[in-house]
Design a binder for these strands. Structure first.
Lengths: 337, 337
DNA sequence: AACAATTGCGCAATCGATTGCGCAAAGGCT
DNA sequence: AGCCTTTGCGCAATCGATTGCGCAATTGTT
């Protein structure tokens, strides 16, 4: 029904065996010394009946599906959809299609997705892991190439490509200090995630190594949500020690903080400065445009796909490639601090 | 390598034939009157060795892959990634995985993607078509269920689920008129797309049927891009007849228009009103928050998947279901008009 | 002319799961 | 005891493409 054409039907109509048809259409005609006439007849017939190989059958036989699994915490998040977009395009160039899974920040759904990938015999996996443990991914990576992006695990040999979050935290904070802010508040996201920990480390190191003695700072918050941004901000603004600058660890947190700041009638950047992580074109259209640390998504996507493709296609011996890469994000100035 | 377990290995270890193992693990043990002992032994062994059926092999034999193809013009566009997110989740509930393709607004890439879907024997396809002709999709839909979303074609029987763009155009325009604006400019997107045509029709009908005699209006623009929004706006603002309200057919267009308006030093909504299509949480954080026609993405996604699943699984006789559905968008008030 | 080398292509197994058909053994009935 | 029914399960084909092995026919060599 789907497409009645197969090697079989072409074989019957041309009079050549299935093997010969297969070899010709695989472009191995010369190699197997198939005659000119046969090659042309078969190719013409395939063309005429618009033959398309059944990739399922091919996959079963060759154990290669030309499919890779991609799991992200939320494809609805612009950062991840941007990554997905980049990865999809790059992989397409290499002849791979992508099976998409949205784990919804839920480790169980991620496990489901990964199992599904395995059952479907993907050739490789790119994952933004949501769990706290690399265990399953490590197990999987023993049978199929896996590359982590954006998030990763400490003490693991799993290859990953991510933002240099320490550097991001460091440079955002240094920028605030240089701008004269002296009472800094970092509103963080999920405490257990490495990116978050690194940003905190960068934040704290920047303060401690600034040479300034009069800087006060604090870290609060617990999720990458705007509710967290709003509540954390409200609390400190109503406390006896309101910060003069806020470092939001994500755009969502920033939006929450922004709402709180506006409700309090404070002016940015005079009453309070704000700097954020992540990138989104809307940031330029806010009032004021938000200064932020942009993550190098295009590079993360490109490097991760290249890495994965190399792992899949490269000779098994040359896995000498350094598989853990972090890329420096860059600061984009708005007028929010 | 990937997973050495198969019906074969379980068969060997339990002493039962491959057929019996297959039937037991397919839950058809009772049906085929397999003995208690056999059932338990086999299930236990499958559990123990963590057997996962090879869906490639299964797919080849059963002609069912439990995979559906989704192609969108740009997964990087929040509207589409939102749709993708919704669709992914719904389909997952029905046991389907999704093969994602990004056509990048290019008909050739869409064709590639669709062919790839066919070769991979997807059970169904959900597409946001980018081409101007339904020909290929119609041909495909004769062999595998296809549902169009967001965009569609006139004079076709292809099932689709989309926003009621006419209504959207109508209600946005009526709103502007009710707010007292009298010189309206609509900045449209791709001229050939049905959603665009319908929005224009709604816009013009609203003006003509308003009962007001003194309304002037115009339609300009040609792509869903912020460049288009910027240039179109600049041109009219510098003309002798600047509009007092702009209806942007997409968020991207609106951002471009916003830039132009700001450059001209005009105040929203006093000097000029602005209303947009699409939804994005950032719209609420702009200054002022943008009034817009929100598309019912959750419903579009849900209905489209339900429709597709029904087409795939339902008895072939009952395709009596009305397959062309448009859903009314709704107006969300900001303070931009 | 006898034999080797080359050309050209087909046979059949294989990948892993599904399924129509059917067979052997056990139990029931008269 | 002889025959029928039910229980319990296996054989082998099938899905479509790939591939190691090998055979027959043709050409070349001496």
């Amino acid at each position: 029904m789907t497409s009645k054409e197969s090697l079989q039907t072409i074989s019957e109509r041309t009079g050549y065996s299935v093997s010969t048809v297969s070899r010709v259409l695989a472009g191995k005609g010369e190699q197997y010394r198939i005659g000119r006439l046969a090659i042309e007849t078969i190719k013409a017939e395939a063309q005429a009946c618009n033959y398309r190989p059944d990739l399922i059958a091919k996959g079963l036989r060759t154990r290669k599906t030309n499919t890779i699994g991609l799991t992200v915490p939320s494809i609805d998040n612009p950062f991840f959809s941007n990554l997905a977009s980049i990865i999809t395009c790059h992989l397409k160039k290499h002849g791979y299609n992508i099976l998409l899974a949205d784990s919804m920040e839920d480790a169980r759904m991620e496990t489901d997705a990964l199992n599904s990938f395995l059952s479907r015999k993907v050739d490789g996996i790119i994952a933004v892991p949501v769990g706290e443990s690399p265990e399953m991914l490590e197990r999987i990576s023993r049978s199929v190439p896996v590359v982590l992006i954006d998030r990763y695990f400490p003490d693991t040999t799993l290859p990953y490509v991510c933002t240099d979050n320490y550097y991001g935290g460091l440079s955002a904070t240094r920028y605030l200090i240089r701008k004269g802010y002296r009472n800094l508040l970092a509103i963080q996201g999920v405490l257990t995630s490495m990116p978050n920990k690194e940003r905190v480390r960068g934040f704290e190191d920047a303060v401690r190594n600034s040479g300034e003695k009069d800087i006060r700072y604090a870290v609060t918050g617990d999720t990458f949500s705007s509710e967290n941004g709003y509540e954390s901000t409200m609390k400190v603004l109503e406390s006896g020690n309101p910060p003069d600058a806020i470092f939001a660890f994500s755009t969502t947190i920033m939006l929450g903080a922004l709402t709180a700041i506006r409700e309090k009638g404070l002016k940015i950047p005079d009453d309070i400065g704000i700097i954020s992580f992540d990138n989104n074109r809307f940031l330029d259209y806010l009032d004021p445009p938000i200064t932020r640390i942009e993550q190098p998504a295009p590079q993360i996507g490109r490097i991760a796909t290249d890495m994965l493709v190399k792992m899949i296609e490269g000779s098994p011996s040359e896995d000498s490639t350094e598989g853990q890469i972090s890329i420096r994000p860059f600061l984009v100035e708005g007028r929010s601090c």
